[in-house]
Nucleic acid binder design. Structure first.
Lengths: 213, 213
DNA sequence: CTCCTTATTGGACCTTGAGCCAATAGAAGT
DNA sequence: ACTTCTATTGGCTCAAGGTCCAATAAGGAG
């Protein structure tokens, strides 16, 4: 992943627009640029691995609506944020675009200043998303390296149970719980219960109901 | 706070529109409705205490732009979510509205179905916001009931320090740390370290840097 | 089939960390 | 002077973590 340069992926069926945008962004403003003429082209292409990017989408693409393309891409592993551009559009369409998370929705002729601000913001959000996804990934991987029993013990621990309560709930001895617990701490690379709770919460570990007290 | 009924606050300078919207929402659909003819009227009025509500704003108000009004209101304690309605507007305006957090941006003539969906969603989000703000409030209040020393100890505890490390850092004995710690737990109404960490994290208690290891 | 690894379980023992009860001392307010 | 709040500390008990050891069962490699 190249650092310092941000990738902008342009999809527009007008060659002149593509070139204009590419020159503007790629030239003096230091973005890496890739261009596509249609949604199909983009979907078929392989983007640089895990490179967070700003999608610059024309709404009125010949083969697929820009919003539908955006929806299709959202499900992917790629971290991206979208800026729409359009020549002919109405308010409901722009509102729908914003609702599904577009960074901005610009009308042609596009104001350079607006475009740059939007693209920079999109890149920023894409990078942010990429980072938080990677962290998520790492945590999930660590969690899946736990054995079923360890995961069970972890769930109880972060629910606030004492070892003896966990032992009773799982019908094993307290000593065994301690062993599992120690393994969990070691595998997840945390040194304290505090860190363990934060990590588990971030990973969305299900909290169990407290016992009747 | 009345339960079960959601409040919709309508601001529009056209009496006929006000009445139409009020009748539609207040009648068969069971919303509580309040209407205002201008931004000033709304700002001067006192809304039911802490009642989460849906703001239904005409964008083209005589005295103040709908978006500016929304911005003014955001800073208040009231939990509200906004749906804009407009007769004459352009895409940049609708995009700006969505950027500042509008739930929807509808064009006249307003489709009843769309309006209802938007209003319901706005009410849902307003209630949600209200709840999370109340929780925030409660936590902040509890935190401020801690003495300075207790807050200091809390900060260290949720940073993963051991009692002896805290004692050394604060230059007091370990026993003292334990007492402060117990008081913190009691005042915040938590029974375990796990809960304490979650509560502190939600309240944004600053984590201290770990000691050199 | 045997050997090896992993997961799960558990006991005895010891060290450290944390929680509970009681208590003192100073400062501030009534 | 008396009460209240805050900060402080000691002693005792319980919880948690570590060490050393060990048994059982499942799954693969050779």
């Amino acid at each position: 992943m190249k650092e310092g340069r941000n990738l902008v992926v342009i999809v527009d069926d007008e060659p002149s627009i593509r070139k204009g945008l590419a020159r503007l962004l790629g030239g003096s403003h230091g973005f890496d640029v890739m261009t596509f003429a249609s949604a199909q082209e983009l979907l078929a292409a392989s983007l640089p691995d895990d490179e967070p990017c700003c999608l610059l989408l024309d709404v009125n693409l010949p083969d697929l609506n820009g919003l539908e393309l955006q929806t299709k891409l959202l499900g992917r592993k790629h971290a991206m944020a979208t800026v729409f551009i359009t020549g002919y559009a109405d308010i409901p369409l722009s509102v729908r675009a914003m609702k599904i998370g577009a960074i901005d929705f610009l009308t042609k002729p596009v104001d350079e200043e607006d475009l740059l601000i939007a693209v920079q913001e999109a890149c920023r959000q894409a990078r942010q998303l990429s980072i938080s996804r990677q962290e998520d990934e790492t945590i999930k991987k660590q969690l899946s390296s736990l054995t079923p029993r360890e995961q069970e013990v972890l769930a109880h621990v972060v629910s606030g149970f004492l070892n003896k309560q966990i032992a009773y709930a799982l019908n094993i001895s307290e000593k065994t719980v301690k062993v599992h617990r120690a393994r969990v701490m070691q595998k997840l690379g945390v040194a304290s219960l505090v860190e363990l709770v934060r990590l588990a919460d971030n990973a969305g570990v299900r909290k169990l109901p407290l016992p009747a007290e």
